[in-house]
Amino acid sequence: MNPILNEATTPALSNNTAKVTERYVHIEDVGMQFVTKKGTFEALKNINLSITQGEFVSIIGHSGCGKSTVLNLIAGLLQPTTGNLFCAGREIAAPGPERAVVFQNHSLLPWLSCYENVYLAVERVFGSETKVQQEARAYAALELVGLSHAVEKRPNEISGGMKQRVGIARALAMEPKVLLLDEPFGALDALTRAGLQDELMRIMQKSGATAVMVTHDVDEAVLLSDKIVMMTNGPSAGIGEILEVDLPYPRKRLELAENVQYNHLRSEVLKFLYERHAKKVA
């Protein structure tokens, strides 16, 4: 559908299948405490997680369990109180373009057009390239998410789903080693969400990038992931179980609905969330 992922514009995306590194993203004994007016609040405790290169990992849990905190730690937006985080063998000390984030509320700059929003990211990462090459990258990223027709539009002129696509395009344009998605489709209606999930699946298949996604949608987690990390409830939340999703690609939403294994995995996640770690309604 979008044949623009050629070697000229996105070299890094196309040749990363050559060597697969285990423990590409590595979280080691991480604990996180926040200092509040009421004293210290322990959000996370003893988090250990390894993500293999090219893997799609979902983090699922009830709201307030610290899943976004884990993502922000990998992004480098937060620093852990204890423990260490590594990405591609290097310690994560600060945010950087090799770990691009797709924010829940898209976080596009409203005074820039879709193209300019993406270009801002390209410009920073590929500053050594010519302007023509940079522009081509920005257009390619927007084409990848199917938004070639809306490049000159401002964020407030397009729908919520389209905004989220621009957010994804901005992240992908940086050619990140790891793509971090913070409830990317949480604010969208069910139909738009399904469409974007399919599209994300297609893009991730094509690029082969490593991805970590925070979600509270069980179907989304099973459909997209290779691995589902299920978190216990906070405070002092930790990783409860890790579920391997070995469904073959390409995955088709409609076929999976009848698939025994898919439904088994789905009920495993549901059992974890609503039986073993049910959250009392506040």
Partner: peptide, 12 residues
């Protein structure tokens, strides 16, 4: 803060 986070991630 969202915009500042964007700035941080993009390393502006």
């Amino acid at each position: 803060q969202d915009y500042m986070n964007v700035a941080k991630v993009l390393n502006l």
